[in-house]
Design a protein around this nucleic acid. Structure first.
Length: 110
DNA sequence: CAAGTGACTAGTG
DNA sequence: CCACTAGCCACTT
Protein backbone atom coordinates (compact mmCIF):
# COMPACT_ATOMS: atom_id res chain seq x y z
CA UNK A 1 0.00 0.00 0.00
CA UNK A 2 1.24 3.46 -0.76
CA UNK A 3 -0.78 6.41 0.50
CA UNK A 4 -3.97 6.00 2.55
CA UNK A 5 -7.08 7.33 0.89
CA UNK A 6 -8.07 9.17 4.05
CA UNK A 7 -4.67 10.85 4.20
CA UNK A 8 -6.08 14.33 4.62
CA UNK A 9 -8.36 13.13 7.38
CA UNK A 10 -5.42 11.56 9.23
CA UNK A 11 -3.46 14.79 8.98
CA UNK A 12 -6.44 16.63 10.39
CA UNK A 13 -6.64 14.23 13.31
CA UNK A 14 -2.93 14.35 14.16
CA UNK A 15 -2.75 18.14 13.99
CA UNK A 16 -5.91 18.44 16.05
CA UNK A 17 -4.16 16.44 18.79
CA UNK A 18 -1.09 18.67 19.06
CA UNK A 19 -0.96 19.82 22.72
CA UNK A 20 -1.16 23.49 23.62
CA UNK A 21 2.24 25.16 23.56
CA UNK A 22 3.78 22.36 21.50
CA UNK A 23 4.71 22.06 17.84
CA UNK A 24 5.59 19.31 15.41
CA UNK A 25 7.02 19.00 11.94
CA UNK A 26 5.68 17.92 8.56
CA UNK A 27 8.16 15.06 8.44
CA UNK A 28 7.08 13.75 11.85
CA UNK A 29 3.46 13.69 10.76
CA UNK A 30 4.39 12.09 7.46
CA UNK A 31 6.34 9.34 9.21
CA UNK A 32 3.54 8.80 11.68
CA UNK A 33 1.13 8.34 8.81
CA UNK A 34 3.51 5.96 7.10
CA UNK A 35 4.31 8.11 4.07
CA UNK A 36 7.79 9.03 5.34
CA UNK A 37 9.36 10.83 2.41
CA UNK A 38 6.21 12.62 1.33
CA UNK A 39 6.32 15.37 3.91
CA UNK A 40 5.31 17.79 1.16
CA UNK A 41 1.89 16.22 1.05
CA UNK A 42 1.38 17.00 4.72
CA UNK A 43 1.77 20.69 4.08
CA UNK A 44 -0.45 20.44 1.04
CA UNK A 45 -3.03 18.48 2.99
CA UNK A 46 -2.96 21.09 5.75
CA UNK A 47 -3.69 23.79 3.23
CA UNK A 48 -6.66 21.84 1.93
CA UNK A 49 -7.99 20.95 5.38
CA UNK A 50 -7.49 24.55 6.41
CA UNK A 51 -9.94 25.61 3.74
CA UNK A 52 -12.26 22.68 4.41
CA UNK A 53 -12.30 22.51 8.20
CA UNK A 54 -11.50 26.11 9.07
CA UNK A 55 -9.89 27.48 12.29
CA UNK A 56 -10.64 24.27 14.21
CA UNK A 57 -7.35 22.97 12.91
CA UNK A 58 -4.36 24.31 14.90
CA UNK A 59 -2.07 24.05 11.92
CA UNK A 60 -0.08 26.99 13.27
CA UNK A 61 1.57 24.35 15.48
CA UNK A 62 3.05 22.64 12.45
CA UNK A 63 6.39 23.94 11.20
CA UNK A 64 9.24 22.60 9.12
CA UNK A 65 12.21 20.68 10.54
CA UNK A 66 14.10 23.91 11.28
CA UNK A 67 11.20 25.37 13.25
CA UNK A 68 10.46 27.95 10.59
CA UNK A 69 6.88 29.08 10.06
CA UNK A 70 6.85 28.04 6.42
CA UNK A 71 3.07 28.34 6.20
CA UNK A 72 2.61 31.71 7.85
CA UNK A 73 1.74 33.28 4.50
CA UNK A 74 -1.40 31.15 4.38
CA UNK A 75 -2.63 32.42 7.73
CA UNK A 76 -2.30 36.13 7.23
CA UNK A 77 0.21 38.81 8.26
CA UNK A 78 1.71 37.82 11.61
CA UNK A 79 -1.21 35.61 12.61
CA UNK A 80 0.75 32.38 12.93
CA UNK A 81 3.56 33.79 15.06
CA UNK A 82 1.05 35.69 17.19
CA UNK A 83 -0.82 32.47 17.96
CA UNK A 84 2.41 30.66 18.81
CA UNK A 85 3.75 33.46 21.03
CA UNK A 86 0.38 33.46 22.76
CA UNK A 87 0.93 29.80 23.61
CA UNK A 88 4.31 30.51 25.13
CA UNK A 89 6.41 29.35 22.19
CA UNK A 90 9.97 30.67 22.28
CA UNK A 91 11.06 32.38 19.08
CA UNK A 92 14.67 32.28 17.90
CA UNK A 93 13.85 34.61 15.02
CA UNK A 94 10.89 36.53 13.58
CA UNK A 95 9.73 33.36 11.83
CA UNK A 96 11.63 30.64 13.65
CA UNK A 97 10.70 28.91 16.91
CA UNK A 98 12.80 26.92 19.37
CA UNK A 99 12.01 23.48 18.05
CA UNK A 100 14.28 21.75 20.57
CA UNK A 101 12.19 23.14 23.41
CA UNK A 102 8.70 22.66 21.99
CA UNK A 103 8.96 19.68 19.65
CA UNK A 104 6.13 17.18 19.98
CA UNK A 105 5.99 13.79 18.29
CA UNK A 106 2.62 12.48 17.01
CA UNK A 107 3.36 9.20 18.82
CA UNK A 108 3.54 11.01 22.17
CA UNK A 109 -0.23 11.30 22.38
CA UNK A 110 -1.34 10.68 25.95
C1' DC B 1 -1.25 14.17 -21.15
C1' DA B 2 3.67 16.45 -20.18
C1' DA B 3 5.64 19.94 -17.45
C1' DG B 4 5.55 22.94 -13.63
C1' DT B 5 4.74 23.93 -8.66
C1' DG B 6 5.02 23.50 -3.65
C1' DA B 7 3.20 24.82 4.20
C1' DC B 8 9.29 19.15 2.95
C1' DT B 9 13.40 16.22 4.08
C1' DA B 10 17.81 13.74 3.89
C1' DG B 11 22.27 13.54 2.01
C1' DT B 12 26.82 15.89 0.61
C1' DG B 13 30.22 19.35 0.87
C1' DC C 1 23.66 26.71 9.45
C1' DC C 2 24.27 27.58 4.23
C1' DA C 3 24.14 25.81 -0.84
C1' DC C 4 22.93 22.33 -3.81
C1' DT C 5 20.83 17.70 -5.33
C1' DA C 6 17.61 14.08 -5.40
C1' DG C 7 13.39 12.02 -3.91
C1' DC C 8 8.68 12.60 -3.11
C1' DC C 9 3.43 13.06 -4.86
C1' DA C 10 -1.11 15.76 -5.38
C1' DC C 11 -2.54 19.31 -7.95
C1' DT C 12 -2.55 22.92 -11.68
C1' DT C 13 -1.69 24.58 -16.26
Amino acid sequence: MAVPADFYERVYEVVAHIPHGRVTTYGAIARHLGIGRSARMVGYALNQTLKSEGPDLPCHRVVNRLGQLSGKTYFGPGVMEALLRQEGIIFLDDDTIDLDRHYWDPAEVL
